[in-house]
């Protein structure tokens, strides 16, 4: 379906990658740890490694969660595009094929959240 309009109705998407000054926007969600109320959107240079991105932007943002310091990033499981995904943390976002506005879920099954209830 499309917009019902009287005339041509076509506009450029507002969030194209060219508007982000060389960065890409990447979303990170910590699975079943909803004490962190929402996933994060961060703008990152695609040359940055995934590990650098995590350490610079994600780890500090979740540090208040008691499970945060127990995360072993080397054994974390990932999902991208709703499917399991195996990145190499020490390769760049581009090499890991992380695209603009991708939504990455990191899963720590051994960490059960606050009260062991996924919070």
């Amino acid at each position: 379906m499309s917009v019902i309009a009287l005339g041509p109705y076509k506009f450029a998407p507002r969030d194209q990658v060219k508007n982000f000054h060389g960065n890409i926007l990447v979303n990170f969600c910590w699975d079943r740890h909803v004490l962190v109320t929402a996933p994060f959107a961060v703008a990152l240079p695609p040359t940055m490694t995934l590990r650098e991105a995590i350490m610079a932007r994600i780890a500090p943002s979740i540090a208040f969660h008691p499970d945060a310091r127990k995360i072993d990033w080397n054994t974390v499981q990932w999902e991208k595009d709703h499917k399991p995904w195996q990145p190499d943390l020490d390769k760049s976002l581009a090499e890991n094929k992380v695209g603009h506005k991708d939504y990455l879920v990191f899963i720590t099954p051994e960490l059960k959240g606050l009260n062991n209830t996924g919070l």
Binding site: P13, Q16, A38, P39, H82, G118, L119
Partner: peptide, 14 residues
């Protein structure tokens, strides 16, 4: 405890 999210790609934009 599961954040709800959906994704759509439309004309090469996510």
């Amino acid at each position: 405890t599961k954040i709800s999210h959906r994704e759509t790609v439309y004309e090469d934009e996510k």
